[in-house]
Structures are given as C-alpha cells and as structure tokens.
Design a protein around this nucleic acid. Structure first.
Lengths: 231, 231
DNA sequence: TAATTATTTTTGTGATCACATTTTCAAAAT
DNA sequence: ATTTTGAAAATGTGATCACAAAAATAATTA
C-alpha cells in the first residue's frame, strides 16, 4: 500500500495541511486518477504526503460532504462507483444547476469579464487542437466558473463543483479508454448571448454545451465503458 | 464562550463522536439557534459536548463544506451573516433544485409512498393548528425529503439540504421576531399531481409551495427583520 | 483440498500535547 | 480621553499515542 498517485501540488505558504490535503485529493479525484472502488486509507494518504492522520481526516470529511467520497459502514472510504443511472442523474442535475447559475450571472456580467471568457475559450480551443485533453478539461471548467462567479453572491458554485467532482472519475475512465475526447464548444454562442444580456439564450447555450458534451454519451456507451473499466 | 445552546440529541451507539457533533451542530444551525456572526470555538464546542477538539474539528469541516459555516481568514468559524441578496439567491436556488428533484422522483414514486406523504402532511397541518412552529418546520422538511428520496439514485438531496441549512439561521430570526409563521401548504396539490404521475403539475406545486412559503417574504420585510436582529 | 479458527497486522478513532498565531485586556504614553 | 504598547490568555493546528474494530494472514480442523 501507499503507492498513491498524487502529484504534488504547489503549496502557497500559510496554507494549512488539511487544506493542502483537500486540494490535492480533490484534484486527483476530479481528474479521475483515483480508481472508484479502491479504498483509501488515512495513514496511507498521510504517509504519501508526509503528514499525519489528523489533517488528512479533515480533508476526507470535507470531500465526503462534497460527494466526492463515500464512507462505507465499515468506515472504509472510497471513490463512489459510477453507474449509468447515477451518471444520468448527475448530468441532468448539472444541466439544471448550471443553466440557473448562468441566468443568475447575466445581470452582473461586465464587458471585461466577457472578454476574459473569450480568452479562456481561445485557450481551450488551442488545447483541444493539440489534443491536450487534461488542460482542455481544466479550461472548460474555468470558463464555466468565470461565468458563474460574475454573480457576487455565490451559493450555487460549490454545488456545481460538487457535481463536477462526482463526474470526475467517469471522465478519468473515459479518457483511458477513448483515444480522443470529443469536445463540444457552445461557448461562442454563450458569449454572444452574454453581450446581448439575453438570459434565455445564455441558458440555452449552456444547456446545449452540457447535453452535447458530457451529456452526449449514450447509455449503451456508458455501460460499455464502465464494463471495460471493470466497474 | 462556553454557554452554547446545544440541546443534547440522542446518540445511537456505534455513532462516532464526530458524527454526533455534526448532527448536533447541524440541527442547532438548521433551527436557527446559533446566531449568525457569533464565532464558534472548537474548544468551546468540545467542552459543551464533553469531548475533545479532534472530532469537533471534523464536524466543523463538514459543516463548512455544506455551506452551513464559513471559515474566515483569521480561521475563525461562524454562521454566515444573511443578507437580502443572499436570501433571494438561496430561495431561487431552492426552487430550481427542488422542482428538479421532484420531477426526477415522479417516475419512481409508489402508491405507498404517496400515502406516507399524505400522513406527513396531515401531521404537519396538526402542528400548524396548535401553533407548533418548530415541528411544523420539521414535518415540512420531512414531506419534501420523502418525496425526493423516491428516486433511488440520490445526488440532489444533499444539495437541497445544504440550502435548507443555509436558510436555517434566517428562519430562526423570523421565528423570534414574527409571532406566528405563515404556513403555505401546496402539498395536497403535489399529492394529487403525484397520483396522476404528472411531472409538470408536481413541479408546479413545489414551485408554488416554495415561492408562496419562504419565498413570500418581501425584500423590505427581510431587510427589516435582519435589521431588527442586529445583522 | 476446502473450510474454519486463531493470531497478527492494519486501520479508524479520539484524547492529549506542544507550538504558533491571534485575541483580549491592562498599563503606559500621547 | 484616545491611542499605543506590552503581557497574558485563548485559540487553531497538527503530530503522537492508546484503544477498539476490522482485515489479512497463518494455523488448524474436517
């Protein structure tokens, strides 16, 4: 045990150990680098990041509250297994949640922020062009996050990120078994709608972006992927 | 410090200390018995429930991930202050989230469960009749929870409960300053719609239940209440 | 050989301690 | 009287330890 693939993240000083552990585990899960079903041990993680059980446990509690981890009756902790049903539940929730977040952002959006969205989208296109899946995924997230945080009163974003976190492991599996991820980009549509402050059009663009993106996986394809991954 | 109004909850044996602390704090926040802005100390809570810092800290981490608590830069922990903007953000999110949860529950609902909903609603009506606000609130929550958990794949409920948790402190304030809470009951409508398996009608009933219930507070009334409570 | 039991190891949990930071409160200075 | 400075107390944090439960391994039995 102990061979946990946690790439060391840079740690701004002043960051507490439990916060660092949280970030590192979170990222690992989000990118799908911890296999669902594999059980995590507190001591194992503590050793892997050269700290002690106390802060690691705090990080694990947070992640389980965020839906990223599940605590079994045996008190074992693991990344939840994905099923086709859960997947479709998560995707439909993501769609509803992000459409709403987008709508609530529109009244607060500034031209400067729209320009920033434009830049992020361009960077994402470049990442896609050079087949850099991982960075394309991150830039896609940043696009959405930048849009939603236009709203200064942020109660939705943590929930959106929770959904991303829960979908992460599946993306990891997909990236392992599918040579090239198919990226949809409705971002230009969203940007145009934003410039017009057209809430309905923005929501429509986000909805399309999600349903044609991660929502585009057919049920059969999902079950196939999960079977391939031995889930 | 120290005099924390935490009514002792019964603790099933086998329940861990941090879980117990989580439950107890959660309930206290949900009912609004911890004043927003008041800062919580780990040692204070530990002392109040006769345990030690370690499990309390885990409980606090979970609660902050659930949006019930906020960790300041000074590392102080408090129940977030409510503002009119945040309130309206939370209510609109609640509406969207619960409409969706209701829709996704409809295909899985059984007659038995609808009967159960009927019973809960009756109990709530009785609680309202005898002006038992606290229990009416709890029964209302149970009604909604019972509806949404018809869906076996539950990814939405934690988020719904997070919203409840964030609205809790405001309800506490409202109950202090308003003699009698005005309860709306669109539950019968929801039940009838459920018997017909009519998703749109169910969602409409839930939407009305929320917008006429907690959503019915006028902005001016909210600001007034918050001012009265010294927020 | 397969199943059962016993032993050993691993693991989660919570209390305690030491340390650094922050807060609080009193004394001194302006 | 107000601000500034200093000491004391309180607080968050993380490492360590002891204990109980669980899992893994070895030994025994059928």
């Amino acid at each position: 045990m102990g061979n946990l693939a946690l790439e060391p993240l840079d740690r701004p000083d002043g960051m507490t150990t439990h916060e660092y552990a949280h970030r590192r585990l979170r990222q690992a899960i989000m990118v799908g680098s911890i296999r669902p079903g594999e059980s995590l041990t507190i001591r194992g993680i503590a050793e892997a990041m050269e700290s002690s059980p106390t802060p690691v446990r705090e990080a694990l509690r947070r992640l389980s509250s965020e839906g990223a981890l599940r605590v079994l009756d045996n008190r074992r902790i693991m990344v939840p297994r994905m099923t086709a049903d859960r997947f479709s539940e998560l995707v439909s929730l993501r769609s509803v949640l992000e459409q709403h977040a987008a709508r609530r952002a529109v009244p607060h959006i500034t031209e400067r922020r729209i320009d920033r969205l434009e830049e992020i989208d361009k960077a994402q296109d470049e990442a896609i062009a050079r087949k850099d899946n991982a960075n394309a995924l991150l830039l896609n997230q940043e696009f959405h996050r930048t849009l939603y945080t236009a709203n200064p009163e942020q109660v939705i974003l943590p929930m959106v990120e929770s959904v991303w976190l829960q979908l992460g492991p599946f993306l990891g599996i997909a990236m392992e078994h599918v040579a090239q991820l198919y990226f949809v980009d409705r971002h230009q549509e969203a940007i145009e709608a934003l410039r017009k402050r057209d809430e309905d059009a923005v929501a429509a663009a986000i909805k399309a972006d999600i349903s044609e993106g991660i929502g585009g996986f057919e049920r059969a394809a999902i079950e196939n992927l999960l079977r391939l991954a031995g889930q």
